[in-house]
Structure formats: C-alpha cells, structure tokens
Design a protein around this nucleic acid. Structure first.
Lengths: 210, 210
DNA sequence: CCTACCGATCGGTAGG
DNA sequence: CCTACCGATCGGTAGG
C-alpha cells in the first residue's frame, strides 16, 4: 500500500509553483535563482528541493500545467456543441479569463519553454498545437475556403497574437479591463474574417503554434 | 584633435551586434555569456570588451537601434501624407518587412529589455510609445468615436499583437511568407475595425506599448 | 590583443 | 525507518 504524503504537501507544491511562476515571469527563468524562489516561499533551498527535483521541474510544471488547462478549456467548449462563431467567441472569452487568472504562467509558457530539454519542449508544443487546432477548426467552419487553402491556422495564430500580446501591455488598473477586451477582440476578428483574401498556394505545415 | 578609429571599427561593431542579437534571441539574454558572444564573433573576450563596455551595452544598442529604425519608418510614412487607411496599410507592410529583416533584434526588444537599468528601459519605452501613437493616430482618423473613447491605442496594440506574434510562429520556408501575411493582417484589421463596439468609459493611460 | 585570473554567485547536495 | 527539514558547503562557471 502506498504511503500517504503529508497532508499539506500538494498545497505547498502549488504555492511554490505560483511564487516561482511570478519570479520567472518578472525576472526571466535564467536570471532567477533557486535561492530567490526559496526565499520568496519562505523556505530553505534544501526544502525547496524536497518538493521539486531541480529548476527545470519547476518550469515544466508551470508551463505544462497551464497549457493542459487551456486544452481542457477547449475540450469543454467543444463539448457544448455551439455553432462555430459562438464557439469561437466563447473560446476567446474563456481564454482571456484564464490568461488573466494565470498571467505569470502564461508569460512563462510563451517566453521560457525554450530553456527546457527538447523532449519537454516537444510535449508542450504538441499540446499547444492541439489547442490551436481547436481554434482553427472553428475558423474553417466560418470560412471553408480558408480551410481548403490551409490558412485557418494562420488566422487562428493572428487571433492568438491579439490575445497573447494583450498581456504585455494592458495594465487593468484603469477603466479598460480584460473583460472589455475579449468582446473587442472577437468583434474585430469576426468583422474582419470575411474580408481576408486568399493568397497564392499557401500551406501552414511549418508553423510553431501558440 | 580626435584620434580616428580603425577603418573597420564600425563594421566590426555591427557584426558583433548582429551575432549577439542572434544569440540573445535564441538563448535568452541572461543565459547567453559574453564568452559565447566572443566565440561566435571569432574574438577573444577582452577584444569583445574593446568594442562594448559591458553586456548591457550590447543589449541597449540592439534594442534601441531597432526601435529607432521603427520610429524612422513611422516618420517616413507620415511624411508621405496618405489618407488614414492607406497610411496604416503602408505602416503594416513596412513593419512586417522590417521585422523580417531584423527578427533577432525584434525578439530582443520584446523579451530582453526588462534586464536593462530602468533609465534605459524608460528611454526605449518612450520611443515605443511614439511608434504606437503613430498607428493609433491613423486608427483615430478611421474611427473618431474610438478616439473620443480613448480606445485607439488599444486597437493599435491588438494590431501590434498580430504582427509581433507572427514572428514567434511563422517559419517562412513554406508557401506562406511574411509578404503574404501583411495584406492578410491589414484586411482582417480594416474589415473588423467598423465592427468594434465602444465599451463603458475606457481609458488607456496605463498601457505599456510595443 | 592574449593568458590568466578575481569576487560572487550559480544549481544542487553533503552530513546530521 | 520514514518524512520533512536545517546549516553549511560542494564543484563549476558567470561577468568582468
């Protein structure tokens, strides 16, 4: 029979991940020392190493945990079986909310995954690709001609660009908040989608998603 | 009388900056050592320090040089006195071209400026703000109601999001290249702009541009 | 312009 | 014999 962990073990792990994500996001992964992480958590460094094998393990848990939650959101929305436009609008709304609640993890995902061993990078990238595919699928239902031209992923990535970039410039202390931005992004995207022209023989096989 | 620099001095500096920008963009600023930069340039570390005072000086020259070129592009296009839509379309086209020619510097600008002393960060950020203002001005001419609602900068930032993010995913070895993306972004943006609704009492004073 | 170093700090782990 | 931790310090390497 498996021995039980101390009761606070998982809570402590989550607390460490949250503090590490904040430090990595603000100062960068390489420039953040394990000692800084430990101090921010009120722990000694050996205690920190009790919860995580090494520095990379922190980064993997932060980035992969975030992207798996995103994949879960996509699955939930798809399961609701909404028409393509409502589905995509709901995806935008939920992603903006999720990003707002996990800004540090999101920044780590987009900026620090390159520091991981290739196997970890690849696994996270594959999950990102599945997320993008969920968005691209809806784009293809709205513009089947883009689907045939293999441009739906490009459009999905332009949409991700608007959303992801938002978290580099919007400081929602003012009157404009994330809740205002989601419909703005959706209106801009759905308004503009019919205006996008086909380009000569495009293929998107060589894109790196998210 | 000022002593003349060796004739190849400026060329050597530019060469070092290009190699350093590539390393910083691929591996991250903090994770790149000055010794790696020196080796990549075929120089000894002391020779590298002959051209640049310290590691930060490399970063400042790369990031500030890039953003000043962008500011120059904005000034050129404004001087052409085109109507707002053509002006913005030309800005998009030129920015995508400039980014494609300076991808490494662009990545350094968007990811590594946070490692600089605050004074340098602030100066670079001010230039970025001027660039964004050039885009936002054109948006305001197309949608004066957004101007009154202080939303033109938010729209300009969504546009920057699409363009900036492009360079994280598009690998233009395939059929789809940067030249194809500029009109796609422009069509999406101009098609969607009329569909954007006003949101309750928004203000953009607290945004961090670029 | 090189070899040879410095003060400090890195990620990770020893003994108890 | 387990877990959860501490004070101290390891071998290497960073920027300069």
């Amino acid at each position: 029979m498996a021995r039980k962990r101390a009761p606070g073990y998982e809570n402590q792990r989550e607390h460490i991940l949250a503090r590490a994500a904040e430090l990595f996001a603000l100062r960068g992964y390489s420039a953040t020392s394990m000692n800084e992480v430990a101090v921010a958590c009120g722990l000694s460094k050996p205690t920190l190493y009790h919860y995580f094998r090494d520095k990379d393990a922190l980064l993997v848990d932060i980035a992969e945990g975030h992207v798996l939650r995103l994949q879960g959101l996509v699955a939930e929305v798809i399961a609701a079986e909404l028409p393509a436009q409502e589905r995509l609008r709901e995806l935008i709304r939920r992603f903006v909310t999720e990003y707002a609640n996990a800004q540090h993890a999101h920044r780590v995902l987009t900026e620090d995954v390159k520091f991981l061993p290739l196997a970890d990078q690849q696994r996270i990238l594959d999950t990102e690709r599945a997320v993008v595919a969920g968005f691209a699928q809806a784009v293809g239902e709205l513009r089947p001609d883009l689907e045939r031209a293999a441009l739906t992923k490009a459009l999905a990535m332009l949409l991700f660009g608007m959303i992801n970039w938002m978290f580099t410039w919007l400081r929602p202390k003012g009157a404009l908040g994330y809740d205002d931005m989601a419909p703005m992004v959706a209106d801009l995207f759905f308004g503009g989608l019919p205006a996008v022209k086909l380009v000569a023989g495009a293929s998107m096989e060589n894109a790196q998603p998210e």
